[in-house]
Design a protein around this nucleic acid. Sequence first.
DNA 1: ACCTGAACACCGTTCAAGT
DNA 2: ACCTGAACACCGTTCAAGT
Lengths: 200, 200
Amino acid sequence: MYANYCNYAYSLTTSHWYGLTMNAASPKRGRPAVVSVGEIVEAAVELIDRDGVDALTMRSLAASIGIGPMTLYRHLADKDTLLAMLPDALLASVCDEVLRKRSGLLALRTIATGLMNVLQTHPGIATLFEDPEQGPNMKAAASHVINLLIGEGMRSSEAEVALRAVVAQVIGENVTRHGKPQFAGVVLLLDGIRLRLEAN
Amino acid sequence: MYANYCNYAYSLTTSHWYGLTMNAASPKRGRPAVVSVGEIVEAAVELIDRDGVDALTMRSLAASIGIGPMTLYRHLADKDTLLAMLPDALLASVCDEVLRKRSGLLALRTIATGLMNVLQTHPGIATLFEDPEQGPNMKAAASHVINLLIGEGMRSSEAEVALRAVVAQVIGENVTRHGKPQFAGVVLLLDGIRLRLEAN
DNA sequence: ACCTGAACACCGTTCAAGT
DNA sequence: ACCTGAACACCGTTCAAGT
């Protein structure tokens, strides 16, 4: 249906480029594509940062790249699948940092501060986590954290709850805006998680 | 500008009707209004429950009430101010229940379960808490909880953090949907808050 | 093989007119 | 005093046509 729908180049850092071609039997035939999905994602983030998330329009996005609006649909099924790709792309460097941690609580704290930072440097982006694509960066970081917590004595279901709670805490703090988001809620939550770890 | 912009009848329960008339010097003159803001809010919730939050359109909302779309603008500044009113209306009965609690932790738990329940019976509504109007119901419940926590030894800034953290946890859990939202994160958070209370 | 203009079926909202 | 039809400036997306 969409020939290179899965031909996505992921993160904004140079460390995680995933170039998957759907049909490997016919590479580089015909006219080369004028944009990649990675470039579209990058342009989308730039546009959001400059003009806000409401200004991200298929038309405005295409214009910022210098292509016709309809060309976007050669690479993307629709606008929602584009929006779903942004979280994993934005979290690439945070996920890298998480992978280097050797303590579960430290990894959780790294996720919290990193996510908080991302949500604040890209205002209005918190609601994009409504239905995020669990991309390669997020998947790797998540399983790393969960393995650390299991290694420290948690059951795997408990570990999943803890990770999920930390992410929910930060997103919730950033979705509603009564003044600046606070980190204090995360601290309370981490106290509760530490309590659970020490009980084992 | 908008004569009865502040003429809002709030909650969906009959227990909290706030009928404020802006200009009390000229009551009941001319043709009576065909709808109240309270009825509009109620119709909006019904429409969201039936067809989802994306189906809430100024045109569809007006049609469901049986008035012209433009009549809505006699009572509402715009769509965003309508959306901002929904949280307080939906939380009316939860706030009532919170006011009856005599323990800070119990009140926090009541908020968590009540909010979780509301967000699940009205799917897709979590993001409406992005910029909610702090209506009468929410204000009353919030100050009650904070007073309870202060009475139990917390500083007022700590109490605000605790309340805010609980709300953020539930909203965050419901904004992103990896399967059904869990209550376990709230439990961890409440553990952290209990720890803080016992330290005093 | 890849791109895109014209067109469709929608939005929220303004404004001048109706009763 | 209250309501509203027509109209404006947008959307996301389809589809048939261009190169």
